[in-house]
């Protein structure tokens, strides 16, 4: 019973982290219909940036994260402007394969520079149990993940609903051509959206690095998680990613509870496939993109 309660709580909190991982991918898919295969690798790249700044260059963790966010915004903007925008009008597959190429490049560069060792940017706070009762305990890292994820999602919702650029992004998302005709520079909006997605990827990368160890090739694993979150929550729905993350987190932890700890990841994958089969557009998907 104790273990079950712990599993459910950990699953929901882990879901927060998963939502942070998936939200950037969801934005990009919702706005330009692009599946960014490099999303996981860009996340891990951010974690390595923070690692370099905070250990090798001796900058404080917060400053390192801010520098990494700025770097990722620039990378995301340039990547979209010069590579993805060049092929985005030619259908889904070319753009998807460009991001696939980028993911291979990032992963191999990281492997050459950092080798295959496990890395972590764990703060001293991460492993402390902030809540410790008879039935369950919550570690600092998991609680931070959950709170940060909610903050990210609230911030994104506010940006999309309350600001001019947010309105332009939503207009582009609803109907790219109509937005273009109304004077929205849609290719620029795409680049801004990618930059925003990279901020979330960077935050997610830091959270992952604070919670688990990571390797240069960890990107794939988190891409699949991001994809699962987005599939379950519905592509393009920001609030949906929070729900999707929690459902996926619960599926993994309950899978581990019922079928043994070794099957945690496998239960997550199988659950994703079941959702994909029964509801190919996601549980909360409110619109269809052709």
């Amino acid at each position: 019973m104790q273990l079950l309660i712990q599993s459910i709580i950990t699953g929901i909190l882990l879901g927060g982290l998963y939502a942070a991982i998936g939200v950037g991918m969801s934005i990009i898919f919702g706005i330009m219909g692009l599946t960014n295969i490099a999303h996981g690798n860009l996340m891990i790249l951010s974690a390595f940036f923070v690692l370099i700044f905070s250990t090798a260059m001796g900058v404080s963790l917060i400053t390192s994260i801010l520098i990494a966010i700025v770097l990722m915004v620039i990378i995301g903007f340039l990547f979209q402007k010069f590579l993805v925008n060049a092929v985005i009008d030619k259908g889904d597959t070319p753009a998807l394969l460009v991001t696939f190429g980028l993911s291979i490049i990032i992963q191999n560069i990281l492997e050459i520079i950092f080798g295959a060792d496990a890395r972590s940017i764990r703060s001293s706070f991460a492993t402390v149990n902030v809540v410790d009762t008879k039935y369950f305990s919550i570690s600092g890292a998991y609680l931070t993940n959950f709170i940060v994820a909610i903050l990210v999602i609230v911030a994104l919702t506010l940006i999309f609903n309350k600001t001019d650029i947010g309105r332009a992004i939503r207009a582009t998302s609803d109907n790219t051509r109509a937005a273009e005709l109304m004077g929205v520079h849609t290719k620029f909006i795409f680049a801004v959206a990618m930059a925003i997605a990279m901020v979330t990827a960077c935050i997610a990368g830091v959270l992952v690095g604070n919670t688990f160890v990571f390797y240069p090739y960890s990107g794939t694993q988190y891409l699949i998680i991001a994809f699962g979150v987005v599939v379950i929550g519905g592509m393009g729905s920001i609030v949906g990613t929070l729900l999707g993350g929690m459902i996926l987190g619960l599926a993994q932890l309950l899978g581990a509870y019922f079928f043994g700890t070794g099957n945690q990841i496998l239960s997550g994958y199988i659950f994703m496939l079941i959702v994909l089969t029964i509801k190919p557009d996601g549980l909360l998907s409110n619109k269809k993109r052709a």
Partner: peptide
């Protein structure tokens, strides 16, 4: 299952299956 998925869903669906198979074989 995967033929119900379109476009990018199919692409990643096939990948998830291969990853699941990998984890299954390890165990």
């Amino acid at each position: 299952p995967i033929f119900k998925m379109n476009g990018a869903y199919f692409t990643i669906g096939t990948w998830i299956i291969a990853e699941a198979l990998y984890i299954f074989f390890v165990k």
